[in-house]
Each structure stands twice: as structure tokens, then as C-alpha cells.
Design a protein around this nucleic acid. Structure first.
Length: 160
DNA sequence: GCCAACGTTGGC
DNA sequence: GCCAACGTTGGC
């Protein structure tokens, strides 16, 4: 059964885990742990599929924006950091028998030739309605439409 | 560092 | 089930 490809955007603070950190991981692959939001969890559990392309977004930094591309290389499985009392993302309500939290593995694909900043995305009429740009949006993982994906990539080679 | 927006928690 | 208090996110 053929399934439509889904596109995603995942946020991370570059001071904590930036795109260069992903680049430097063995196999350029890392598990995306620590997500403790049910909406984001549900997307990883139900909708993110092998091979789905993902924008890497740097948040909470000098220039928030999209910095690169990665892909899903392992579909949703229990986030073991929730089981570890020493982990900052520990959740006492989650255990192996009943894991509350889910993560996926992602692999580095490439770094964009320049950062496509949030500031640059905001005024674009083509991106009106994009989840990222919705007021008060705090999701760390969100869907991107194919049209949004293509448009954003077209900006990479556009002069500012 | 500030603070708006939002999710979660817990008392009732 | 309501909602106030609190914690977190994340742009600025």
C-alpha cells in the first residue's frame, strides 16, 4: 500500500542540540528524546513514517529559523529518558509496561546554504496558515505541507 | 531578562 | 468539570 509522504519541522535549541551536533553523531543519527507534549507525541507515534523529510529548526537563539534537513530513520518507539530518574525529562508516570512518551530517530541529510529565518518566513503570503507561524504556537514538532516545504526550499537560493 | 501564550495540575 | 495557579516555550 502506497502512503503519502509527510513533511515535518522539529525545533531544537542550538545551545542544547543543534544541527552540527546531529552532523557529528555516529551515523549522523540521533533519537529525538525529551518531547513531553501530547500533540507532538501523537504525531511521532501515529504519523511520522520512515523516510519522511524534516526541517531542522533552531529555536531560542539569536536567529531562529530553519537551518537544515533530516529524515526519519526509525519510527516511533518509547522514549527511554522518561524512565531515568536522573534524566531531566524523567516522568514517574511512564514505565516500560506503559510508556507515556515516544521518540523517533532522525538522520542528518544536509545543512541549508543559509539559515531561512523565522523573520523571513513570517511575511510570506505563501506561508499564511503555516503551523509554525500561528500565534502562540509552542509545538516543538509540527507538520509542514508539501507546498510549504517546496516554497521554503525555493527561498534558499533567493537573495534576501 | 521580559513576558505573552499556552499546557498542565490540582483544589473544589 | 471548572478554573486559578503554575511552569514552560520561545520570540524579542
Amino acid at each position: 500500500m502506497e502512503q503519502t509522504m509527510n513533511y515535518w519541522l522539529m525545533k531544537s535549541e542550538p545551545d542544547v542540540f543543534g544541527i552540527n551536533d546531529l552532523y557529528n553523531r555516529p551515523d549522523q543519527t540521533e533519537h529525538w528524546d525529551g518531547v513531553r507534549n501530547y500533540q507532538a507525541r501523537n504525531m511521532m507515534r501515529d504519523a511520522m513514517k520512515l523516510g519522511d523529510p524534516v526541517f531542522f529548526y533552531h529555536s531560542n537563539c539569536d536567529q531562529p529559523g530553519i537551518v537544515g534537513i533530516m529524515e526519519v530513520v526509525k519510527e516511533g518507539y518509547p522514549d527511554f529518558t522518561a524512565f531515568d530518574a536522573d534524566d531531566p525529562h524523567f516522568d514517574p508516570k511512564s514505565d516500560h509496561a506503559n510508556p507515556h512518551w515516544i521518540m523517533v530517530d532522525v538522520r542528518y541529510v544536509r545543512t541549508l546554504s543559509r539559515t531561512i529565518s523565522l523573520k523571513e518566513l513570517k511575511p510570506r503570503p505563501e506561508l499564511e496558515g503555516m503551523v509554525l507561524l500561528r500565534r502562540g504556537n509552542r509545538l516543538s514538532i509540527m507538520p509542514v505541507t508539501e507546498a510549504e516545504w517546496e516554497f521554503i526550499l525555493s527561498l534558499e537560493t533567493t537573495a534576501l
